[in-house]
Design a protein around this nucleic acid. Structure first.
Length: 971
RNA sequence: GCCCCCGUAGCCCAAUCGGCAGAGGCAGCCGGCUUAAACCCGGCCCAGUGCAGGUUCGAUCCCUGCCGGGGGCACCA
């Protein structure tokens, strides 16, 4: 049996011991202290300036280091919490309380990420307005978390759905909309490339300092463009822009989704619905402009290697060349390749089905077209149209199922290989993706496995340009080797290694003006609009030209309008032909709006999309610094104090939140988006820090066993018992059941709630158990039965100080003995080390040792009790406050200095020296720690154990590691 | 298929620089307390570190291969 019914008889208060530390007494103490902390403002963090002072009205002490501590933004679920949820909140609370006792000014608060799909779905299900259900859920969650005793500054809480917060989310959107990325602008850190206000771009065009890019101007100068054309030129360069691009359309959710929200199976991360590629006009954010900085600055921050690797991987930087190919009969197109050295082996071309080259294809098949290439169609026009339609209807799942079995069709186009001059056929195939590189490749079957497969399928020629090793029997050879078959009148790569060949070829291409060195990224721009109700509206209107116009700041926030129906228009999950239909479009009075934006009152049309729920979590850390500001998104002085580079010893060159704790599931979503927004705000001068989160810590998950019966149905885990008589070892109601390990939740019937723990043990026991289960970053199984161990510890602590019957203090004023002082100071030293390294499980183990030692004494010396209480206070704050008060201290221990060990008591009088012969322990010696090597060697050689083990053999060498080890090596 | 992390007692987990395999908790067993039981107190049992090699005076720790578990990526040119 792994999960007892939580209430056990041991927690009832026995009449003979009215002050035993039972769940009832713990609850009384805990709630009393929670009220006091709130009334006294114990955990108010003082800002250096402005309205937020500490409880005494003081601003931050300039001498005290600041420590900005954060949990990942919780989403207030309607389902309530289970025991896995608080793990991270307890951990950050322990860190915060510990840092505070170490003298830091700790900022720790918790807000709510309350927009988004789940909130909306919950509201639709319950038939209520999302604002109502969201607010109710926040109330419930606040109550459950307050009962944990978290030392948050309650003045700094907020929800992303607050109108005051939405104002600034929209304001930041407008900052991004009103910016462009200047690749050549110098940065303070020495690099080049940063966001600049779009007004500066316009000014440069007007003054002639900058020429309008030809692909945007159609060859005309700025002065030759009319007003609308100029706006199109500028709009195309904004960091937030509207464009018609292939996007992820999810009919089942009724909205488009970002790449990061689509699983590798091509389904929505939420709801697991199919996702289709559709060309739609949508908002995008130019995160790709920051790709290099998002990679490079990973080196500045203290994050788990795993998360940094995931971000690097997601951004997917690859170096190569872009090469121009001429199309026979006119026109050109570009390909991207990481292997320009293999150009001589490019025997055909492949473009993605969405490629513009296919908008016009020859009307008839060229002479000699193989029937294998035509797909049975009479003309390229028909073949390409059919293939394009087929590709558009495929989900990513289907595409993936086909991986390896290549499909495609000849387009009728022929291209010229610039190295060989040969005419090669251009195919279209869906293994080439429009969103990566140029959407077109040169196919080199000799050096690329995918191309080889395609070539085999369509009977295309193979030319090897890298010599495979002797005896190579495989297909494509992608390894290192000398170039072959790679020479023309102007250039020869033959004999060069891959790297040299790449360089030589790229130089030749650049000289000839038909290629350039290029870097490409897997990362795409961030698709930023959703066709849902419960999100931030865009602060954008459109004029008669259908061009976006930013609303002026004084019109913010744009609040959500009431609509007749806020449910999304969803479709059959596989309805490919469906079109998104934003709920905000249902309120025509709101959509059509008359405004005076400078040229008199005119009618505009509002944007009816909403922002993704990531928007709110992209900047919430800044809002903790001083929520509710009307004049500025964040006070620069507060940002420098709490987050600026060098604001404390550990903040480094990047600055940012000192410690950010949360699950690893946001590694490439929230954490990438937030870094992007932060860098834009940094470029525009709103924040001094370069990165939002200096140190990231991923906590593990608490999971639990679940049990299925013979039919595979889940049974209530808390009713399962261990049963030797059945093979699985577990039974439920007398029938054998089978154990699995998985997420805690209602569906697995293994849920345990914090409320049950508060009732059965109290919050301190619950906190202590969660922290003692193992290292914080490891996932581990919940075991309700084991919680009692933490409760026993607190009971023994309580009894060491308070008489269970009378409530009298039992501590003695006598000085501790030398032995007690040694244990005490050893514990202080070790606990400090463990706490600083966030190894709370081992810190707790040391505290238990000390407490058990005190239990053996006739009476506990006050000095030892007080030190123990202070050491334990971050972990079990309520009982420690209570004991601290009973020990005669009128004020909270929240800011008492964390104990420091006296080194005098850390020195051992004797050390056990291990005496080994050939690595095996043969004897032990009690020696003074200061013993010299020579003396130790002599004494070790003289021991009976060594003599017996040597058995007359000579000694070759003796390794001495004074004072702890001697190892004798026989001859 | 590629990459990363983890395998220590029945269970959760410790072990600093390569130096006595055990800090703590749970469960189990024995004893004490008790009219009795629970709570509580004391004590005990329990692994040679997933497997096979290698380096070393000495390996849980470093290296190689394999097995098991977890995670990430996956037609990215």
């Amino acid at each position: 049996m792994t999960t007892d019914a939580p209430a056990s008889s041991g927690t009832a208060t026995p009449p003979e011991a009215p002050l035993r530390y039972t769940a009832a007494l713990a609850s009384e103490i805990e709630q009393r202290w929670q009220d006091r902390w709130e009334e006294r403002g114990t955990f108010w963090a003082a800002n250096p300036t402005g309205r937020l002072t500490d409880a005494d009205g003081n601003h931050a002490d300039a001498e005290a280091p600041s420590f900005f501590l954060m949990d990942m933004f919780p989403y207030p679920s309607g389902a309530g919490l289970h025991v896995g949820h608080p793990l991270g909140y307890i951990a950050t609370d322990v860190v915060g309380r510990h840092r505070r006792m170490c003298g830091d000014n700790v900022l720790h608060a918790l807000g709510y990420d309350a927009f988004g799909l789940p909130a909306e779905q919950y509201a639709v299900q319950t038939g209520q307005h999302p604002r109502k259900t969201t607010e109710e859920n926040i109330v419930t969650m606040r109550r459950q978390l307050r009962r944990l005793g978290l030392a948050h500054d309650a003045r700094r809480t907020f929800a992303t759905t607050d109108s005051e917060y939405v104002r600034w989310t929209q304001w930041i959107f407008l900052q991004i909309f009103s910016s462009w990325y200047d690749d050549d602008a110098p940065r303070p850190d020495g690099g080049t490339g940063r966001a600049r206000p779009i007004t500066e771009l316009v000014a440069e065009y007007e003054s002639g300092a900058r020429e309008v890019p030809a692909e945007l101007s159609g060859g005309r100068t700025w002065s030759e463009l009319d007003e609308v054309a100029r706006r199109r030129v500028v709009d195309a360069q904004r960091l937030a822009y509207v464009s018609e691009t292939p996007v992820n359309w999810c009919p089942g959710l009724g909205t488009v989704l970002a790449n990061e929200e689509v699983t590798v199976d091509g389904r929505s991360e939420r709801g697991n619905f199919p996702v289709f590629k559709r060309n739609l006009r949508q908002w995008n954010m130019r995160i790709t402009a920051y790709a290099d900085r998002l990679i490079a600055d990973l080196d500045l921050i203290d994050w788990p290697d795993k998360v940094r690797a995931m971000q690097r991987n997601w951004i997917g930087r690859s170096e190569g060349a872009q090469i121009t190919f001429d199309v026979v009969g006119g026109g050109t197109f570009e390909v991207f390749t990481t292997r320009p050295d293999t150009l001589f082996g490019a025997t055909f071309m492949v473009v993605s089905p969405e490629h513009p080259l296919l908008d016009e294809v020859p009307a008839a098949w060229p002479d000699g077209t193989s029937t294998a290439w035509t797909g049975g169609h009479a003309s390229p026009t028909a073949a390409v149209a059919a293939y394009r339609a087929e590709a558009a209807g495929k989900t990513a799942v289907e595409r993936q199922a086909d991986a390896g079995r290549k499909t495609g069709v000849f387009t009728g186009h022929l291209a010229v290989n610039p190295a060989t001059g040969a005419q090669v056929p251009v195919f279209t195939a869906d293994y080439v993706l429009m969103g990566y590189g140029t959407g077109a490749i040169m196919a080199v079957p000799g050096q690329d496995e995918r191309d080889w497969q395609f070539a085999a399928q369509f009977e295309l020629p193979v030319v090897r340009t890298v010599a495979p090793p002797e005896g190579w029997e495989g297909d494509a050879f992608t390894g290192e080797g000398p170039a072959v078959n790679s020479a023309n009148d102007e250039i020869s790569l033959d004999g060069l290694g891959v790297d040299d060949a790449k360089r030589t070829m790229t130089e030749w291409l650049e000289q000839r003006g038909i290629g350039t060195r290029t870097v490409t990224y897997r990362l795409r721009d961030w698709l930023f609009s959703r066709q849902r109700y419960w999100g931030e509206p865009f602060p954008i209107v459109y004029d008669e030209h259908d061009l976006p116009i930013a609303l002026p700041e004084d019109m913010l926030p744009v609040d959500l309008p009431e609509v007749p129906d806020y449910s999304p228009r969803t479709f059959e999950p596989d309805d490919v032909t469906s079109m998104p239909e934003p709920p905000l479009g249902r309120n025509e009075e709101w959509v059509a709006v008359e405004l005076d934006l400078g040229d008199g009152p005119r009618t505009y049309r509002r944007d009816t999309n909403t922002m993704p729920n990531w928007a709110g979590s992209c900047w919430y850390y800044l809002n903790y610094l001083e929520p509710g500001r009307r004049d500025v998104v964040v006070d620069p002085e507060l940002e420098r104090y709490w987050m600026g580079p060098g604001h404390d010893a550990d903040s480094g060159a990047s600055g940012g939140v000192d410690l950010y704790v949360g699950g690893v599931e946001h590694a490439v979503l929230h954490l990438l988006y937030a870094r992007f927004w932060h860098k834009v705000l940094h470029d525009l001068g709103h924040v001094s820090s370069v990165e939002p989160f200096r140190r990231l810590f991923n906590q593990g998950y608490i999971q639990a066993y679940a049990y299925t019966d013979a039919r595979g149905a889940y049974v209530w885990a808390n009713e399962v018992v261990e049963d030797e008589s059945v093979p699985s070892g577990f039974s439920w109601n007398g029938q054998e059941v089978f154990r699995e390990y998985g997420k805690i939740g209602k569906s697995l019937k293994n849920s345990v709630t914090p409320d049950e723990m508060y009732d059965a043990y109290g919050a301190d026991t619950f906190r202590l158990y969660e922290m003692s289960m193992g290292p914080l970053d490891l996932s581990r199984p919940w075991d309700t039965r084991a919680v009692v161990g933490s409760q026993r510890f607190l009971q023994r602590l309580w009894r060491n100080v308070v008489d269970e019957t009378t409530g009298e203090l039992t501590v003695t004023e006598d000085a501790p003995t030398d032995a007690t002082l040694r244990v005490l100071h050893r514990t202080v030293e070790d606990v400090r080390t463990e706490m600083e390294a966030m190894r709370f499980n081992t810190a707790i183990a040391r505290l238990i040792v000390l407490n058990n030692h005190l239990t053996t004494l006739p009476a506990v010396p006050r000095a030892a009790a007080e030190t123990l209480v202070l050491l334990l206070a971050p972990l079990a704050p309520h009982i420690c406050e209570e004991l601290w008060e009973r020990l005669g201290h009128p004020t909270s221990l929240a800011r008492e200095p964390y104990p420091v060990a006296d080194p005098a008591y850390l020195v051992e009088e004797t050390v056990t020296c291990v005496v080994q012969v050939q690595g095996k322990v043969r004897d032990r010696l009690e020696v003074p720690p200061s013993i010299g090597e020579d003396e130790l060697r002599e004494r070790a050689l003289a021991t009976a154990g060594v003599q017996r083990a040597l058995d007359g053999r000579g000694v070759r060498t003796v390794i001495v590691r004074a004072p702890k080890l001697v190892n004798v090596v026989p001859a």
